[in-house]
Amino acid sequence: MSLTSLSHFPTPKISHLSTDDFKFIYEPAEDSFLLLDALEKDCVRIEKLRPCICLEVGCGSGICITFLATILKSWPSLYLCTDINHKATEIAQQTGRENGINIQPVTTDLVESLDVRLKGQVDILLFNPPYVVTPESEVGSKGIEAAWAGGERGRQVIDRFLTKVSDLLSEEGLFYMVVIKENIPEEIEQMMKKEGFDMETVLTRRSGPELLSILRFQRTQA
């Protein structure tokens, strides 16, 4: 973990989580903390947006959506989060509570059951996808493997989600996503350009074998 000493928002407490919990859900790691750092770096941009609805897809422990709510503490918003792993949504709810934040978890696959009514409504969208390159056959579990197994180039779940982003985001909305180099961010940039989005890399950090980046997407401003 490497939150900078300059950080002025507290990292969410996760001491309520036990090693037993981490048999079922993804333990916050470098990728999670890099997303936190990127949100903190972007805090002025995020606050300026005055978001009404925030959504984290694949929330795991809930640390990222809880942190986003911490940044926006003086600005109330709806904090929705989803995970295909029911244990994860339970723990995310607990993480929110432990930090005095009210988050609204739904157990579902990506944004299923929410996408129709959230059309064009999401102001801040977070996604720390299963980005690890694995055999295709490992993708599709509803357990802890769903937290990392990304199939070929780690893109199976990422690509499935990217097609939904344009429908979900509000006009000014921001979409943050974690990727590794193997996911080929340049190709993702081209895909999203066709959907009308500009991509920027907010932060990049090496963690062991992984070269992690946080990408931010926003509609191309006319």
């Binding site: 709806l78 929705l80 739904v106 929410l114 129709v116």
Partner: peptide
């Protein structure tokens, strides 16, 4: 009920 307001079963 705020959350409920956004849920559908068209899946």
């Amino acid at each position: 009920l705020l959350t409920h307001n956004f849920l559908t079963s068209n899946i």
